[in-house]
Design a protein around this nucleic acid. Sequence first.
DNA 1: AAATATATATACCGAATGGTATTTTATCAG
DNA 2: CTGATAAAATACCATTCGGTATATATATTT
Lengths: 199, 199
Amino acid sequence: MGRGRPRKTDPEQALDTAMKVFWNKGFEGTSMSDLVCATGMAKPGLYACFGDKEALYKKSLTRYFDNLGTPLLDDLEHSTDPLPIVVRRFLETVAHSMLDESCPSGCFVVNSLIEGASQHPALKAIGKEYDQRRRDVFSQRFADAQKNGEIPTQVNAQALADFFAAQSLALGVMGRTGTNEKELSNFIDVALTALPANH
Amino acid sequence: MGRGRPRKTDPEQALDTAMKVFWNKGFEGTSMSDLVCATGMAKPGLYACFGDKEALYKKSLTRYFDNLGTPLLDDLEHSTDPLPIVVRRFLETVAHSMLDESCPSGCFVVNSLIEGASQHPALKAIGKEYDQRRRDVFSQRFADAQKNGEIPTQVNAQALADFFAAQSLALGVMGRTGTNEKELSNFIDVALTALPANH
DNA sequence: AAATATATATACCGAATGGTATTTTATCAG
DNA sequence: CTGATAAAATACCATTCGGTATATATATTT
């Protein structure tokens, strides 16, 4: 086993905790003291494990996306379900995560895009990377759908993909302000009427 | 005229400037020193004119909404144009304000909702008030439209109104991340396909 | 010109910030 | 038991924060 004094807190668990704090309170709104209290790790321990505050924020956002974003995008990319089914599942999963009782703080990526836009180019950059990844998967899936005849050839598949990708931005803001489940559900129902069926 | 030493800076102009700084950098991201530099007013002058930082932020957000939000909602409420025309105009005006070169910082209300959600209940409250006002006007306009036969009786007018009101949230996030004019335009085109015509 | 009123400029305050150096404690290897 | 190692705990640092007290400058009023 290790040679020195044993860890009081598992770093992976500390990162999960830090993620929720940053997610909820933002970068500027979170102090290192907040993180010390929440994680149980002492301040020098945090710096030794994760680097400075910005590095810890980046790792938190990456953890968030690995947990929630990547599985969502994998399903969107690889599921053989019909397009309306898979798009609905995507939006409903996003909406469901907005109601997560353990951290009802909207979408961490959206929060990062908003807060990092002006002052923290590094944070904006990583947020935009994840935002772009989502958009790319939507674009690819909708282009395939048009080739497969799931949507009519005369519609602009790229615009349609961008539209549905952007709906998760609206859901993110709504989730942050406490919109309830029924309203989120209605929102998704209306959004899906913009998806043209091929018949 | 006034009795003492004349003002170096017009408070109204200072408020306009402070609004743009808060809009761009957020509440936590803006220091009083930033505001001193931007407005040209000395720090005690800012406190004498506007109160503390939170009061100045509130006045800035109010100024923003009076300038941009209120005229938009007035048009939505009172215009006799057909519903698709007036909804399109609403969204296009929002999109246009996202491209404003003087302050391309998204929507100040959306930014406030995101940032204020966790730490600053007072800021969240005023943001939600404006958000609610927008939703109320949409609801009323769509309810009227359904009575007037502009939209079919069998659709859920309330859900439709909430959906279009929420599209400005998505536009706000897109505007903050630098989405270009063509993408915003395509987004609006797709969104409007969710508005059922009555024929 | 003297007194008054109002705004500016400067200096300052305690508290909190991000970050680090130092000391103490707990484990394992010999 | 002893010495080495690694983490924890504490104290500390310079800077910046929001906010204010004090002093100075510029105008009007009498």
